[in-house]
Amino acid sequence: MKVSIIDYGLSNLLSVEHAFRHLGAEPELINTPEQIEKAQALVLPGVGAFQDGMKGLEELGLAEPLRAAAEKGVPLLGICLGMQMLFEESEEFGLCRGLGLIPGRVEAIPPRPGFKVPHIQWEPLWPAGEKKDFSGSFLKEIHPGEEVYFIHSFRAIPADRADLAAVTGYGGLEICGAVARENVMGCQFHPEKSGPVGLSVLKGYLSLCGK
């Protein structure tokens, strides 16, 4: 299975690459519109600031091809900032438009006594709403309560709660841990940095790509 990882100049892509290779996939780094058009499975990683991320995608002419690929049904997994960019807009450094593939917005985590920002911690993932487990989503390989590594100062708020694939809590706030809207998926945590549990998340994503 070929997995195309989008390289727009921001991230540590090596770990994402190693993780997919470890799982038997063939990761490749891509940075042109033509490569996105040909991709069978896309991964949008990212750390850092929202506006830098969007600027990086737009300068390489990748935002529009990414939207087109997602609409065509190509599996797309956003990681951390990559997940946040799937949303419509972020309030980071003033309002900034995202890819708009998932309705909703990204806002700053308000600091609370004893709960510092950035939020850097291993947190348990729980199914959202009425669901009892993660079956049917790309998280199907993991169990509720298993912990993954978060490092972020902003949280996504999906407009449609049906898009919420997993949540966690921080200082009484609900944190969107993962989203899934048909073929568009994202995790706020870093699966490539979350040990065996994180690798299982990526395995679940790969199993959906094969179909």
Partner: peptide, 8 residues
């Protein structure tokens, strides 16, 4: 290390 250790 990063070839086989998947943590920060």
């Amino acid at each position: 290390t990063v070839e086989e250790v998947y943590i920060p």
